[in-house]
Simulated assay, not measured.
Amino acid sequence: MAKLDIKTTVTAPTTINIPLVRADHAATSHTFRTCFEVALSIFSTLLGYVLGLQTTLQIHWVFLALMGAATLAFLILSVRAGRSSKVV
């Protein structure tokens, strides 16, 4: 095996700042993200179902509004928890 000696000069800063991620907030953000994706899939399914119906009942619109609100709420909670996990 060949051995090569190469003279090099390395310039580096004296300190390196590494931003830490709080694991408890990151796990909470992940949980909210999972709930957001589940709520979004149910909302999308309901929206397709309601749009495909000939006649819609009030209960369809109520469940659609509830799932839309849940989707929005979990999205906001996920974003807030994600941002707080990056704050040291």
Rank of each mutant, 00 (worst) to 15 (best):
K3R: 03
K3T: 02
D5W: 10
I6S: 03
K7T: 01
K7L: 01
T8K: 09
T8H: 07
T8Q: 05
T8W: 02
T9Y: 04
T9P: 10
T9C: 08
V10C: 07
T11V: 07
A12C: 12
A12N: 06
A12Q: 10
P13C: 08
P13V: 02
P13K: 06
T15W: 01
I16F: 01
I16Y: 01
I16P: 02
N17C: 02
N17D: 03
I18P: 00
P19E: 00
P19A: 01
P19M: 00
V21R: 09
R22H: 01
R22S: 01
D24T: 08
D24K: 07
A26N: 04
A26S: 04
A27D: 05
T28K: 06
H30L: 07
T31R: 11
T31F: 14
T31A: 13
F32N: 04
F32P: 02
F32D: 00
R33I: 04
T34I: 13
C35V: 09
C35D: 06
C35E: 09
E37W: 12
E37C: 14
V38E: 10
L40M: 15
S41K: 15
S44L: 14
G48M: 02
Y49N: 12
L51A: 10
L51T: 12
L51P: 10
L51D: 10
Q54I: 14
T55P: 04
Q58S: 06
Q58R: 05
I59G: 00
I59L: 04
F63S: 03
A65P: 15
A65E: 07
L66A: 12
L66S: 11
L66Y: 13
M67C: 13
A70M: 12
A70D: 06
L72Y: 12
A73G: 10
A73H: 10
A73D: 11
L75Q: 07
S78C: 15
S78L: 15
V79H: 11
R80Q: 12
G82L: 05
G82H: 03
R83H: 05
S85F: 00
S85G: 00
K86V: 07
K86L: 12
V88H: 11
